[in-house]
């Protein structure tokens, strides 16, 4: 039975509290995710934006508990429908995956088994009773704009866009409460990207799942997201609502500047963040790069919620009054 936690008007489907992930090497442990805090509510599209290597995919894999062997969750909680998945065993987690939480990966051609037909993939993804399996599969395909005949073909016989639609159909088939979309449009052309985004939005409006959309494209996130989280080197530095307010964190502003055509990004090109993961835990992770830094930024900066939906990890803007 799914437990739900209500905050305000909308149900919280996913809540991540103080999550830290380490990569354990022979001699040392490197911090990959540091004190991650956010939640995704039913029916919303939460976009997580960050550059390559910032830890977006690690976060997605942490949420489905499929981190590589060398990665270890050091602390924190991941609540799905109120249940802390870090406390449950692998067998129970297997029952949650695909059913309560599903994921769409970035390169569909690599994530579909080349030896099996699309129908076989969809049948395997469906966890319900067998009675109306065929009907549901056809319906899921129809919903993503594919013919039922596509079931007999193999992944390599489909285009990239069609393959991604299949991935979405597989993610959708059990009507999960949250769908993680890990850069689902990275391998696609502009038109197909638009179609996939429209499809995800249509699904969100129809079935009301929470969508955790990971991308490195801030412009796309600004257009599609209900809330946006900005990630920088393993830290969520700001969560804000697009349209209503502008982000306050200097890094978020630099990213935004790239969309607006400002040359702030040029400053970054000549600077290099030389801090290692330990130093980043001891002071603001953006300290080396920040043009607005002060002496007080040289200490651990926690992530602070400004209201129930937005928050920041910076002292500068005044919203972070708890520090």
């Amino acid at each position: 039975m799914c437990l739900t936690q209500k905050t305000g008007e909308m149900e919280q489907i996913l809540e991540v509290k103080n999550l830290s992930v380490l990569r354990v090497e022979k001699t040392e442990s490197i911090s990959i995710l540091n004190d991650i805090n956010f939640m995704v509510k039913k029916g919303e599209m939460f976009c997580l934006v960050g550059e390559s290597g910032s830890g977006k995919t690690t976060l997605a894999l942490s949420i489905i508990k499929l981190l590589p062997k060398s990665f270890k969750i050091a602390s924190g909680e991941i609540l799905i429908n109120g249940k802390n998945i870090l406390e449950i065993n692998e067998q129970s987690m297997r029952n949650i995956r695909g059913k309560d939480i599903s994921i769409i990966f970035q390169d569909p051609s690599a994530y579909l088994d080349p030896l099996f037909t699309i129908g076989s993939h969809l049948q395997e993804s469906y966890h319900g009773k067998n009675e109306n399996k065929k009907e549901l599969i056809s319906l899921a395909l129809q919903e993503v704009g594919l013919d039922s005949e596509v079931q007999t073909v193999y992944p390599h016989q489909l285009s990239g866009g069609q393959q991604q639609r299949v991935m979405i159909a597989m993610a959708l088939i059990n009507k999960p409460s949250i769908i993680i979309a890990d850069e689902p449009t990275t391998a696609l052309d502009v038109l197909t990207t638009r179609q996939v985004i429209d499809l995800l939005n249509a699904i969100r409006l129809k079935h009301n799942p929470a969508i955790f959309f990971i991308t490195h494209d801030l412009e796309l996130a600004m257009k599609t997201g209900t809330r946006i989280g900005i990630m920088y080197r393993g830290h969520i530095v700001e969560i804000f609502k697009p349209g209503r307010e502008k982000p306050s964190h200097p890094y978020a502003n630099i990213l935004l500047g790239t969309i607006e055509g400002k040359d702030t990004i040029l400053e970054l090109n000549f600077k290099k963040n030389t801090m290692d993961s330990k130093q980043m835990q001891q002071k603001c992770p953006f300290f080396d790069m920040c043009v607005e830094k002060e002496a007080r930024c040289k200490k651990t900066i926690p992530f602070v919620w400004c209201d129930s939906e937005t928050g920041i990890r910076c002292l500068k803007n005044g919203r972070n009054t708890q520090v």
Partner: peptide, 26 residues
């Protein structure tokens, strides 16, 4: 360690199916 095996785990496919159907066949 291929992405399609990771995707099979992520879909909640039972362990034996992941090992014998996806990993072994390939």
């Amino acid at each position: 360690n291929t992405p399609y095996v990771l995707a099979a785990w992520a879909r909640g496919v039972p362990r034996n199916s992941v090992i014998f159907k996806h990993a072994l066949r390939n």
